[in-house]
């Protein structure tokens, strides 16, 4: 399954709930304000790093760039553009949005 998270982890529990619901082998795509969860040295970096053990974490590069944080992304996060977003939707059996 593909999960999308569009909320900053610093103001919402969408990411937290998403990671609880994301079973092994699924992909979590951070979009819109959700991309702030990709920042290295942040208070959620450890959570993300742990999640990477079982799920793929991806982030929408245009959203990172727009927010001026493209060069602050932690290692191991897969960066995609909108075309890559479409591919993720098609490669997985369904998409769940954590709004």
């Amino acid at each position: 399954m593909l999960h999308t998270v569009n909320k900053s982890p610093f103001g919402s529990n969408s990411l937290e709930t998403c990671l609880k619901m994301a079973t092994s082998g699924s992909t979590v795509l951070l979009i819109e304000d959700g991309v702030y969860a990709a920042l290295k040295d942040s208070s959620v970096a450890e959570t993300i790093a742990q999640a990477m053990g079982t799920v793929t974490i991806a982030a929408l590069a245009p959203d990172l760039a727009a927010r001026g944080v493209a060069d602050k992304v932690m290692d191991g996060i897969k960066l995609v553009d909108y075309s890559g977003f479409v591919d993720l939707v098609c490669e997985t059996d369904k998409t769940t949005a954590w709004l």
């Binding site: 399954m1 079973t23 769940t96 954590w98 709004l99």
Partner: peptide
Amino acid sequence: DSEIAGMLDEQDVVLSF
């Protein structure tokens, strides 16, 4: 929640509100 995670995996269409 762990059980809900498994149940969600079995769905075909997930509508979020």
